[in-house]
Simulated scan of single mutants.
Amino acid sequence: MIEMDADAFGDLVDDVFDRIPQSVLDELDNVVFLVEDRPADGSLDLLGEYDGLALTERDDYGMVDLPDRIVLYREPLLSIVDDEDALREQVHITLVHEIAHYFGIPEGRLHELGWG
């Protein structure tokens, strides 16, 4: 486990986010990315979460709909790494994992691909 305050963690997430290919980001519509300390239940078990309706499940989606959310949880992520390099890698994996859920890729398939 490493220690990192919310501001430093946010900067690290921004840096990792900037490395996601622009072609992927261009396909995201009405999605916000957030960092929170922990999930609502207070556990350290969940690293990130996609809260929305996957593209594969949408019929009609318009501008009046609330945005989908991709949330990274700072404390759970910090609790499973030993250094900043490992944290960067885990943040990247978690971002890709949650973005994949937006595109409709299920949990089982992500694990098969090594993104679980």
Score class of each variant (00 low, 15 high):
E57S: 12
Q22T: 07
D83I: 01
D60R: 06
E89L: 11
D15I: 00
P76R: 08
E98I: 00
L47P: 06
H97I: 04
N30H: 11
F17G: 01
Y73S: 08
D60L: 12
D37T: 04
F9S: 05
G62N: 13
G48D: 10
G114N: 08
D59F: 08
E27R: 13
A8P: 00
A6V: 09
D51C: 13
I2M: 12
E36H: 07
P67T: 12
R109M: 15
S23G: 07
D83Y: 05
G52I: 11
T56I: 03
F9D: 09
A40I: 03
D83G: 08
E36N: 05
V13A: 14
T94N: 12
Q22V: 11
R109L: 15
A40S: 14
I93W: 00
R19Y: 02
D14H: 10
Q22N: 08
G114D: 13
V71F: 01
L87A: 02
D37L: 02
E27H: 08
M63W: 05
T56K: 02
L95S: 02
L55I: 03
D11T: 00
G42Y: 07
I99A: 02
H111A: 13
D68H: 14
V64H: 12
P67N: 09
V35S: 09
F17H: 07
R38D: 11
V81D: 12
P39Q: 08
D15Q: 09
D59G: 15
D59C: 09
